[in-house]
Simulated scan of single mutants.
Amino acid sequence: MTTDQAGAAPGYRIAKFGIGAVVRHRIYPFRGIVFDVDPVFDNTEEWWLAIPEEVRPRKDQPFYHLLAENAETEYVAYVSEQNLLPDTSGEALRHAGIHEMFVRDDRGFYRMRDRTPN
């Protein structure tokens, strides 16, 4: 596969957010931490069509798997890049799954846990 000048394969964009990035949704009141990135939409057509057409995201952009939370609950979300913004609040996330996947450093940044077996 060849790449363009930015290093991305043709038809793909470089993801704006990396693993461990804390983000918030542009429209809906939730935030989360990125634990996986798809370079383009990689979910079911049914899932995509269930989104109201007026807010349905384009498929030709990175999509992020998030350990997400809002005021009431914690869940896993699949969100397009166009609907995410950096979360600069500095507040720790409470999602129970975070501690299995990430370590938070003294500066408040999250990094993947070392998954090397003992």
Rank of each mutant, 00 (worst) to 15 (best):
T44W: 10
A8P: 09
M112R: 10
D60W: 05
T3R: 13
P86A: 15
A15W: 01
T44Q: 14
P86W: 06
T2R: 13
A96E: 00
I51D: 06
Y64W: 03
T44F: 08
I33R: 15
Y28C: 06
T2W: 11
L93G: 02
A77Q: 11
S80I: 05
F17V: 01
I14P: 07
H99A: 14
K16F: 06
R107L: 03
A8M: 11
P10I: 07
E54C: 13
V40D: 12
P10A: 12
E81C: 05
I51K: 08
G108M: 06
R31Y: 00
G18W: 12
A15G: 04
V103K: 10
G7P: 15
D42H: 09
Y78M: 03
Y12L: 14
V79K: 07
L49R: 12
T73G: 08
T116I: 05
E72K: 15
A92C: 10
E72H: 12
M112Y: 01
M112L: 09
D87H: 03
R111S: 14
A8S: 13
Y12Q: 11
Q5P: 10
P29V: 03
G108H: 07
P62F: 00
P29W: 02
V23H: 00
H99C: 14
Y110D: 08
V79T: 10
D42W: 04
A71E: 04
K59V: 12
E53Q: 11
D42R: 11
Y28M: 05
A8L: 11
A77D: 12
I27K: 14
V23A: 02
L85Y: 03
F102I: 00
A6T: 15
E54H: 15
V34M: 01
N83W: 04
T116L: 08
N43T: 15
M112K: 11
G20Q: 08
F63M: 11
A50H: 03
A50V: 07
F109Y: 14
N43A: 15
P52R: 01
E54Q: 15
F41C: 02
M112P: 07
F35A: 10
M1S: 10
P52W: 00
H95D: 04
S80W: 02
E81L: 06
V79R: 06
R113T: 08
D60Q: 15
H99N: 13
M112G: 05
R104Y: 01
V22M: 06
N118A: 12
G108Y: 02
G97Q: 09
L67R: 01
